[in-house]
Design a protein around this nucleic acid. Structure first.
Length: 594
DNA sequence: ATATGTGAGT
């Protein structure tokens, strides 16, 4: 575009070009440059289309602003939009102060435009501050903020704002608000809220839009409700590719592979995403061989199609085949992107093959991808899984951008390697950075607590905050962690009560954790209860005998301990062999340890 | 004036 302008305007418009093509210029230079010949701008507009037309609009707007006639808010809006789309930060800030000086501080239109400027530069805080100052925000102001939070992964903020919007008397949510809220529900698995939004949509009569239906399908799919997703899909009068892909994804991700396949066959124009969804489903829940067959027979496989296969092998601990596919991908000329590297790195992490990891790290540097958020997070994860927490931390520090996954990888690295003080510190740092923790973050924090000699009430406080402040439903793993923590403090009674209170009475893993906790605090009564519960839930496992025998032994009840051991061998329950991962000359093998 | 919906990562 710059070259074009130079040809068109050899002698005129130097300042104009500066205006159009640089993002560092100030507001002053913009307002001065409106003296330039508008014919010149029009020439560019003819040659370059919309971008130049926007510049023309801005330029005329700037002219009007500068003149002493009464300024019009819409001109400011135009200029702010131009600054937003060019990413010109100083320019936007100057327009803001200009707006305030000229008395537009409570103009909804100008302020809303400024809000999206702040959202665009990633400052949700700034956008929210402006929002708070608007006397009567419109639904657009609300939506700008809600979708801003959504974009940056702050789902809970987005949703609480949405709830607030529905309570307000001055303003009512529209289709934009609904779709944004549905997306936030899906991404944080909040089925109840998602359902209530669905019923609100039906009540207001917004249902038939393709957009909304697609969001509903997606929400239900992400919340694990395939049937409801399929029902919404079936009720749609006109479906687009995204509707098909969403319903396909709902099936495939929830293990309904046959149904996903039949949707794929019925679908009028399946694209790469459609096939990739099915490949993913098979790679996750079905046969890897089927997944590979789909890849080899689909019309135009892309990097993502291959990535799904690599990921599939990695998740099944078939690192050898993952590496084979990884190299095959390269030799067949398929581009390796950030997801390729992150998948293969995660395979390396789980087999603790450090020298492979370093080799791949070098590859990512060659491709210029090592500092991307996705690859960077995978590198942090790989180094900490290979026991190189210091390397992981310096990787973490060197990243220009971090997201929740980066933080989780780092925190979990500290947690697994025994740096409990670091876990707590990084968790606090994450909150200061304005990132919303998810269930994995809390799992790491709780598990660090249970290993790090923290008072059990602090753990409980975090669990409560997770549930009440972040709307995260505790999983069995959270409950296990907190039970270990409470159990170590000798409060197994309290732990038992909590299992029921949180609704995990029929979950074997939590009773197992309780039984384990009884071992360390030597509570015979609760141990008997837990063991009985476990036998009732999942039959007689070797570890129940081992744990009971240990509890008896810790009480000096040697004859009972011996009896349990005897009972164990009499019933033919055998203790499985332990094993560890060892890397020999770059060949990954698992060698059994006696 | 908003720019919402399908894939990949811990």
């Amino acid at each position: 575009m710059l070259r074009h302008a130079n040809v068109l305007l050899p002698e005129l418009g130097t300042r104009l070009r500066h205006l159009l093509f640089t993002s560092t210029h100030s507001f002053t230079s913009l307002t001065c440059s409106v003296q330039e010949d508008h014919g010149v701008i029009a020439a560019i507009a003819r040659g370059e289309g919309l971008e130049a037309r926007a510049a023309l609009d801005s330029s005329m707007a700037a002219q009007r602003l500068q003149s002493h006639t009464r300024p019009c808010g819409y001109d400011l809006v135009r200029l702010i939009r131009a600054a937003t789309s060019r990413g010109s930060e100083s320019h936007g800030l100057q327009l803001q102060s200009h707006a305030l000086k000229r008395g537009f501080g409570s103009d909804v239109f100008v302020m809303t435009a400024l809000m999206s400027f702040y959202v665009e530069k990633g400052s949700l805080r700034g956008a929210h501050n402006l929002f708070d100052e608007i006397p009567e925000p419109t639904v657009v102001s609300w939506n700008t903020l809600i979708s801003g939070y959504l974009r940056f992964g702050l789902f809970r903020k987005a949703l609480s704002l949405f709830v607030q919007l529905n309570k307000s008397e001055t303003c009512v949510g529209d289709a934009f608000s609904m779709t944004a809220a549905l997306a936030a529900c899906g991404r944080s698995s909040l089925l109840q809220l998602g359902r209530s939004i669905h019923s609100k949509i039906v009540k207001v009569g917004m249902r038939c839009s393709v957009f909304i239906s697609n969001c509903l399908i997606d929400m239900y799919g992400k919340c694990g409700c395939v049937q409801e997703a399929v029902r919404v899909f079936g009720a749609m009068c006109c479906k687009d590719t995204i509707s098909w892909n969403s319903v396909l994804s709902a099936c495939a991700r929830n293990q309904n592979l046959e149904e996903a396949l039949s949707f794929l066959q019925e679908m009028p124009n399946p694209d790469a995403i459609s096939y990739n969804e099915v490949i993913n489903g098979f790679a996750q829940f079905g046969n890897m061989e089927d997944a590979v067959q789909i890849l080899l027979h689909m019309p135009k496989p892309n990097s993502s199609s291959w990535n799904s296969i690599v990921t599939g092998y990695v998740n099944r601990n078939r690192s050898r085949e993952a590496l084979d596919f990884f190299t095959r991908m390269h030799s067949e000329g398929m581009e390796m992107d950030q997801f390729t590297f992150s998948s293969i790195l995660s395979g390396i992490g789980s087999s603790a093959a450090l020298s492979w990891g370093i080799a791949i790290h070098c590859c990512t540097m060659k491709c210029g991808l090592d500092l991307s958020v996705v690859v960077g997070s995978a590198l942090v994860d790989m180094y900490s899984k290979c026991g190189r927490v210091e390397d992981a931390e310096s990787m973490f520090d060197s990243l220009p951008q971090r997201n929740l996954i980066t933080w989780n990888a780092m925190i979990s690295g500290f947690a697994h390697n025994g740096y409990f003080a670091k876990v707590v510190h990084y968790f606090e740092q994450l909150l200061i950075d304005g990132i919303e923790p998810d269930e994995i973050t809390f799992l790491n924090v709780l598990s660090a607590f249970s290993h790090g000699g923290v008072p059990s009430d602090l753990g409980m406080k975090h669990l409560e905050s997770m549930i009440d402040d972040y709307w995260i439903h505790p999983t069995a793993e959270h409950v296990c962690s907190i039970i270990r923590l409470i159990g170590q403090r000798g409060e197994v009674q309290r732990a038992g009560t909590m299992i029921h209170k949180l609704g995990f009475g029929t979950w074997a893993p939590v009773w197992r954790a309780l039984l384990g906790a009884c071992g360390s605090c030597r509570d015979l009564e609760i141990a008997r209860i837990a063991a009985a519960k476990l036998i009732q839930l999942e039959g007689e496992g070797d570890y129940i005998y081992v744990a009971m025998s240990n509890v008896y032994a810790s009480h000096g009840k040697w004859s009972e301990a011996g009896a349990v051991r005897e009972l164990m061998s009499a019933r033919g329950v055998r203790k499985g062999a332990g094993f560890s991962w060892i890397q020999v000359k770059n060949v990954v093998t698992n060698s059994h340890v006696a």
